[in-house]
Design a protein around this nucleic acid. Structure first.
Length: 268
DNA sequence: TATGTATGGTAAG
DNA sequence: TTACCCTACATAA
């Protein structure tokens, strides 16, 4: 159930424990047996996180592509359960199991590149280029809230970072993307980048600025430390937070701090 | 114990 | 636009 920073944490952990070693790869569940056989006993040379996607490069030249989706997660194995899609183990003590992923496939380099090429800039990566995001969003008429969640525009942004970054920038999610100014875009990109980096450092998502927090980080409940995401009232002004369904996902906004565009009001 | 919800994305229609 | 993937967790009963 990750947003982008989680995948970078996983990549970092797997790099440390599995990187550079010949691994025993299997699919106890049976669903990816052939794929596992193709890389079994080869060396895991490189692990890359791009947005919510993970890429594992093997000495065979092939690439394992993983996307966790809502349900997917890694756990330290061997877990014994019948639902392990993918297992990577060293000869000694490390065993990492993958359960319930949306994607778990072994690809040729070209195909893996094609997956990565569809993704927009991930602010947690050195190669992230904001201009790509700007170019992909500036002509779109749908709400900026929808565009922010589009992984081909911003890679790594999920529902929490969407709500919180738009809040911080004072932009309503229903503002058509093509009405977002260059200055607003720059602020939005910088905000998303800052939030992702902070979450990477904290290993959790606390978007409220440190000097606004009412109590120490460690004492914050799971849902605290957010301005509007899953909040009853706006953190700053107390206005009841509006929640509505946007393309199948809950969207949150404070319509005092984030003035709705004129067109949105006509529909209400 | 049962039920509902979720930080996501794809493929089918 | 809908169905699906098919887990973990919180809350209700």
């Amino acid at each position: 159930m990750p947003e982008g920073h989680t995948l970078h944490l996983i990549a970092r952990d797997h790099r440390r424990r599995l990187g550079g070693r010949a691994l025993r790869v299997s699919s106890p569940q049976g669903r990816a047996v052939d794929a596992a056989r193709r890389v079994d006993r080869s060396v895991l040379e490189r692990i890359d996180a791009h947005g919510k996607h993970l890429f594992y490069e093997w000495s065979t030249g092939e690439v394992l592509h993983v996307h966790l989706g809502i349900f997917g997660h890694f756990l330290d194995g061997p877990s014994g359960g019948p639902n392990v899609r993918w297992r990577m183990a060293t000869d000694d003590d490390v065993c990492i199991d993958l359960v319930g992923p949306t994607a778990c496939e072994v690809l040729k380099p070209d195909a893996a590149d094609a997956v990565a090429a569809r993704l927009g800039p991930d602010p947690l990566r050195r190669d992230a280029d904001p201009e790509v995001a700007w170019a992909r969003l500036r002509n779109r008429r749908v709400g900026i809230g929808q565009v922010l969640m589009d992984q081909s525009v911003f890679a790594g942004v999920g529902n929490i970072f969407r709500a919180e970054s738009l809040y911080v920038c004072g932009i309503h999610p229903e503002r058509p993307a093509n009405t977002v100014t260059r200055d607003e875009f720059d602020a939005l990109y910088a905000t998303v980048a800052r939030m992702l980096k902070q979450a990477l450092k904290d290993k959790r998502i606390v978007t409220v600025a440190r000097d606004e927090l009412p109590k120490p980080l460690k004492q914050l409940d799971r849902l605290e430390g957010r301005y509007v995401y899953r909040q009853e009232n706006c953190f700053r002004c107390g206005t009841p937070v509006r929640r509505w369904d946007l393309a199948g996902r809950w969207c949150y906004a404070c319509e005092t701090c984030q003035p709705p565009p004129p067109t949105a009001e006509l529909w209400r």
